[in-house]
């Protein structure tokens, strides 16, 4: 489904972003009657076939060089993407993830702190880290909702609330999507800078993955500040968010030198990355809230229960105890997760 020709030509397309790709001239001796041998549409389309991201382009006198594109065959593929691919990918990824999470909840239930809450807490995230997380998170929710609206709104919402209201809402959503994106992009950048050091892969990550973090009861693998699951989430967010930002800004700023095929590609990449990331983030939200006892306060208050920390991040706790013992403090009895 995803393997539309757009993807087959991902790299050539990026290279071929220059406009005015000269049409392949028909081979004609100059003395021949030019009327009889006039260039035809079919001829030009056939010539384009080896590289379907090209357009039949010619010369126009107006400064809008894109107007020189007479026929762009990739419009058909974009249409297929927009009406089918993204819809199906989204319809599989997001409800699928929700179903998976529900299934997981049914099987595993809430992951409890096995040792029970202790009286001690350990500082997990400083204020600025939490600020960045929430900035990224809230903007992602706004972007996700307004983005999903463009994919599913027409099918799900429009019949319910009517064209006028839906259009007004979508228009607003589009403005929100455009402007909020800057906060999101900034957040992604800061998160990368803050946490990349702790998210570099380590050998023990393999064990963590093999044991699936102990969540299905194969015992608790050790982890540093971030376990392999969190690292995967980090990289998904950074790469996914980064991709979204780059493709989004291409869509937004529309560099003149970009061919339509490049713009289409940006749109496709943006959309698909978007729905997939939404699905991934759903898992993140699940595990940070309903799915695991004691996890939410890491971002809520910045501190976590020491027992929770020991269970999930034993290596890290040891390091903190060694380097910054002050971060571990006897606090009040832990409150249940919000």
């Amino acid at each position: 489904m995803i393997a539309t020709p757009l993807f087959r030509h991902l790299f050539p397309a990026l290279l071929a972003m220059l406009l005015c790709v000269a049409p392949v001239a028909a081979q004609q001796p100059s003395a021949v009657n030019p009327t009889a041998s006039s260039v035809t549409e079919k001829q030009l389309l056939d010539a384009l076939k080896p590289n379907s991201t090209d357009t039949i382009a010619g010369r126009v006198s107006i400064p809008d060089v894109r107007a020189g594109n007479l026929i762009q065959p990739t419009g058909v593929e974009f249409r297929a993407y927009q009406t089918t691919t993204i819809f199906q990918v989204g319809a599989i990824a997001i409800p699928g993830m929700l179903a998976l999470l529900a299934l997981f909840y049914l099987i595993r239930g809430r992951v409890r702190i096995q040792g029970g809450p202790s009286a001690q807490t350990i500082v997990r995230f400083a204020w600025f880290s939490r600020f960045v997380h929430w900035m990224t998170a809230t903007s992602f929710i706004a972007l996700g909702l307004s983005g999903l609206n463009l994919v599913f709104g027409k099918t799900l919402l429009l019949p319910v609330i009517g064209a006028s209201a839906f259009s007004a809402m979508s228009q607003l959503g589009k403005f929100v999507h455009d402007y909020v994106s800057f906060a999101f992009a900034l957040g992604i950048f800061l998160m990368f800078v803050m946490w990349v050091k702790d998210n570099l892969p380590a050998l023990r990550d393999i064990r963590w993955i093999v044991q699936f973090g102990g969540m299905l009861g194969f015992g608790h693998p050790t982890a540093d500040r971030f376990n392999a699951g969190q690292k995967l989430m980090f990289w998904a967010t950074i790469l996914g968010g980064g991709t979204l930002a780059v493709s989004g800004y291409i869509m937004m700023f529309r560099p003149v030198s970009f061919a339509i095929s490049a713009m289409q590609l940006a749109t496709v990449v943006h959309g698909l990355t978007g729905v997939v990331l939404v699905a991934i983030i759903l898992a993140h939200i699940y595990i940070g809230t309903v799915g695991m006892e004691g996890a939410f306060r890491a971002m809520g208050r910045g501190t976590v229960d020491l027992n929770w920390a020991k269970e999930h991040h034993s290596v890290w706790v040891e390091k903190v105890a060694r380097k910054r013992p002050k971060d571990i403090s006897g606090g009040p009895a832990p409150a249940p997760a919000e």
Binding site: R130, W134, V176, D178, V180, A183
Partner: peptide, 19 residues
């Protein structure tokens, strides 16, 4: 909580500024 409110405010501020 303050970090969350600050973050929301920052999102709004950045968005309005960008617009």
């Amino acid at each position: 909580m303050t970090s969350f409110i600050a973050a929301v405010l920052a999102v709004v501020a950045i968005s309005v500024g960008a617009s």
